[in-house]
Computed example of a mutant assay.
Amino acid sequence: MEFRHLGSSGLKISEITYGNWLTHGSQVENEAALACVRAALDAGITTFDTADVYANTKAETVLGEALAGQRRESIEIMTKVFWPTGPGGHNDSGLSRKHIMESINGSLTRLRTDYVDVYQAHRFDVETPLEETMQAFADVVRAGKALYIGVSEWSADQLRAGQQLAKQLGFALVSNQPQYSMLWRVIEDEVVPASKELGMSQVVWSPIAQGVLTGKYLPGEAAPEGSRATDTKGGQRTISRFMDDTILERVQRLQPIASDLGITMAQLAIAWVLANDNVACAIVGASRPEQVTGNAQASGVRLSAEVLAAIDEALGDVVVRDPALTAQSTPEKRPS
Rank of each mutant, 00 (worst) to 15 (best):
V319S: 07
D245T: 03
L218M: 08
I283E: 05
T293S: 13
T232M: 15
E153F: 02
Q158A: 09
L268W: 00
A269Y: 00
G86R: 09
P289A: 04
D157F: 09
R302G: 01
D114V: 14
G10V: 06
S304T: 14
I149W: 03
Q70W: 05
D139Y: 06
F124C: 06
L67Y: 09
P331L: 04
C36I: 06
Q252T: 07
F48C: 12
L111D: 02
G64S: 07
A258R: 00
V212D: 00
G69I: 12
W184L: 08
G106L: 04
Y119L: 11
K233I: 15
A121D: 10
N20T: 13
V301M: 00
V204S: 05
V151F: 07
A266C: 01
L254K: 00
L159R: 04
D42F: 10
E249A: 11
F242A: 01
S9T: 09
E313L: 14
Q163I: 11
P207D: 03
M78I: 12
L130R: 08
E306I: 09
Q120C: 14
G211K: 04
G86W: 06
S14A: 05
T238I: 15
L6K: 02
V81G: 11
V212Q: 01
A324P: 00
I247F: 02
A266S: 06
C36K: 04
N295W: 09
L325Q: 13
K58H: 11
L268M: 01
Q267T: 00
G262V: 01
L173A: 11
V62D: 08
T61Q: 15
